[in-house]
Amino acid sequence: MRPFAYSRATDLDHAARLAGDGARPIAGGTNLLDLMKLEVETPDALVDINRLPLGGIETHGDGLRIGALVSNSACAADERIRRDYPVLARAILAGATFQLRNMATTAGNLCQRTRCYYFYNTDMPCNKRAPGSGCSAIGGFNRIHAILGASDACIATYPGDMAVALCALDATVEIAGRDGQARSVPVRAFHRLPGDAPERDNILEPGEVITAVMLPAPPGGKHIYRKVRDRSSYAFALVSIAAVVRMDRGAIASASLAFGALAHKPWHDTRIDDLLTGQAPSDALFDAAADRLLEGATGQGANDFKIPMARRILKAVLREATGDAT
């Protein structure tokens, strides 16, 4: 770990100003501190935002506003979230451990970095860690890597669960900038594809700090978060799917699906939701949805299995969501 400066933000503007000067915001630190110890991350300065008034889950219009500093545990335990947005509670509880969820925050979870083995190994080239050095995962061991939206520069995946559910819920990220500026970005547009700049995981600009995540009005319907992993707990997804599906008189009235562990971002494709909406459920329909999801999917060798696995899990989720539990 390299020496770094540490300061505690006194207010949001202070935090944004320090972040604009290169300081990394730190909240729970569950990911950043590990990466700093390994020197995967080497910030010169940290700005601690834990004392900013960014906690609490509040009613906001017909929806909810989840403060950036709300812990994952608190979010998953919130009565309104459990009742109206169960896919979110389930996704959070599918990730990490009690101890980590107690420390991890809403904003920090969104900003967690990839678990690519080569990103973690500072002896190896990695375009995400050291831009321009190359991608070691291509041609290497890439069991957990992307089958969708990868580039020649990077095949890493976004590893989280919570953001996948937020994509299915079409939540919005509220972001503060310098000098009191603010903007809102749909979670679906928050994370990036790697392209030729994989060092950028998301659209945050220097000096920007996440202040909250906004949930729209409760969508109703059936909420499913399904995560396939190598062990029952404390493992990242091989494939995960968040689904919010509402049925009406035997047909799919609305569907919103998002996919984890397949790409550099939680994967959402409006065309899949559109294809399902208004249709009577059938295996043929589910296959068509899987075809759409996986058109252009490319395996890298060790992760080839994700293509058939995603198809199978999508089918399982849609059968469950539309009423056939087997």
């Binding site: 678990r115 083995y117 190598d230 029952s232 707990s233 404390y234």
Partner: peptide, 10 residues
């Protein structure tokens, strides 16, 4: 994290 020893749930 990545060398998967069984956890309690396993």
């Amino acid at each position: 994290a990545e060398y998967h020893i069984p956890v309690s749930l396993d």
